[in-house]
Computed example of a mutant assay.
Amino acid sequence: MQFEELVAELTSRMISGTFISGTISQSRTKTDDLKRVKIKPVELKGQLHIQFEYQYERILKHENILPDALQTYMQQLLEQFKQVHAEFSDEKIHVQISKKFKVMWKSDKVLSGKVADLSHNRKKNYLLDENTPYPFLVRLGVQTPDGKVKKQKHDKFRQINRFVEFIDDSLAYLPKDRTVRILDFGSGKSYLTFALYHYLRIEKGLDIKVTGLDLKKEVIEECNVIAQDLGYDNLEFLVGDINDFNDETSVDMVVTLHACDVATDMALARAVKWGAKVILSVPCCQHELFSQLESPALDVMLQHGLIKERFAALATDSIRAELLSLVGYEAQLLEFIDMEHTPKNVLIRAYQTGKKSSAEDYARYHAFKNLLNADPFLERELGDLLDQ
C-alpha cells in the first residue's frame, strides 16, 4: 500500500460508521512537542465530526473536523508520525510508516460488537453515575435520596465528575503499598474533597488519609460533622491556611482550589518540597504578574486593561507549569469546569516524574520571564531546587 492510499483508506473508514477510536503516535522528530493524537467520532448538532485530541508534553488541545476536511488533516498528521492504531466495530488495525513512507498494514478481525459512541452532546458517561445515589452527594444536597441530581445542582454535579476524572487519571502515580496522604488547601464547602475521598476510598479501595484545610471555622465544623455522619474515618477538616500547616514531612497528593494569587504558589512550593506525587491546582486572582508586566513588544495588547488582566492570568499559570516542569514534574494546563468563578477555568495538573531539565529548558523559561519583566513568587520559593 502506498502512503497516499493509506491516507485515503483511513479517511474513508473513519467516516464509514464503523470507526470507534484511534491513536497516531511515534513522532518522526525528537524535538516535536506533540506526543500523540487520539481520534474518535463525535456528533455535534446532528452532524458527524472526527475529534482530534492533541497531546503535547504539557497541554491537551481538541479540534473537531468535518468529514470533507478530514483527508487533509490526516495527511498532515501521518507525515509527522510513524504509527497508527485504529479500532473499528469489526476490525483492529496497526500501521507502521517507514522513514521513506513505506506502509506496513496489519489487520485483525474482531467480533466485539462495539459501536461508535458519538455522545459529545448527548448523555455524558460519568465516573459517578447520575442515577446512582451516593451518600456524600445526598448529604451535600446535590442528589435526592433516590439518586436524582437536583435541577439546580447539575452544574455542580458536572464539576464534581470532571474533578473525579482528574483523580482517576492520577491513580498510577499514587503509592499502593501504604497509606496515601492527601492534603486539600482551601477546601471550602468541600464538595470536591468528599468526592475525592469517596472515589479513592469507597470506589477504588485505597488506604488514604485526607485533610481539608480552610480558614472558615463554621464551614470546617460542618464538614467534620458530615464526614462523621458518612463514616469517613480517615477524612478530617482543620482550620488554617497553607502557612499554618507544618505537621507533615511527606505528602502524596496536594489539592489546592481557588487559593488567591500567591497563596497558590505557596501551596505549589509546599507540595514540591513535600515530594508530592500528584498536584491538582485551580488558581484564581492572579494579581502578582499584572503589576510587574512591562514589555514594550506587547504594548498593543497590554494597553487594554481587560486584555492585560487575562494575559497576566494565562502567563502566570504558564510560568507555574514551567517551573514545576523544571523541578521534575510533568505539568499540564487543562480545562476545568468551575461554576463559582467562570464557566471554564484552568487546572494545573502535575505528576512527579523526576525528569531532569536541560540548559535549553532553563533558557526558554528565562527568556519568557525576561520578556515580561516577571519576578515570580514561585521561582523564589523553589530557589534552592532550581539551583540544583
Rank of each mutant, 00 (worst) to 15 (best):
Q96R: 11
Q75H: 13
S291Q: 09
D233N: 13
K209A: 11
Q51E: 15
L326G: 05
L324D: 09
E79L: 13
Q47K: 15
Q332N: 14
L111Q: 12
F237D: 02
F290A: 03
G17K: 12
D241V: 04
S12M: 07
A271G: 06
A267N: 10
Q71E: 15
L44E: 13
R28F: 01
A267K: 14
T144K: 14
P376L: 01
H304A: 04
V37T: 09
L333I: 13
L215G: 02
L334G: 00
V225F: 09
Q388Y: 10
R162H: 12
I39C: 10
S318Y: 13
F290S: 00
V95S: 00
N234E: 15
D261K: 09
G354R: 13
A172Q: 14
Q292I: 05
M74H: 05
F81L: 00
N373S: 10
G141T: 02
M266W: 09
K369G: 10
T342R: 06
G275E: 06
F101H: 12
I160D: 02
L268G: 03
N224C: 04
L196Q: 04
A195I: 07
V7M: 00
L174K: 08
E322G: 00
P175E: 04
S12K: 15
Q83T: 12
F163W: 07
K102C: 04
T179C: 05
K355D: 07
S119K: 12
F368Y: 09
N131T: 11
L333W: 07
R139Y: 00
V254M: 08
L323G: 04
D387I: 07
L382N: 12
A350Y: 06
L44G: 01
P376V: 03
E379G: 06
L347M: 15
L326H: 05
A69R: 15
E4T: 14
P67G: 07
V219K: 01
D233C: 02
S325W: 08
K176T: 14
D247N: 11
K216C: 03
K38D: 14
R122N: 11
F81V: 01
D68K: 08
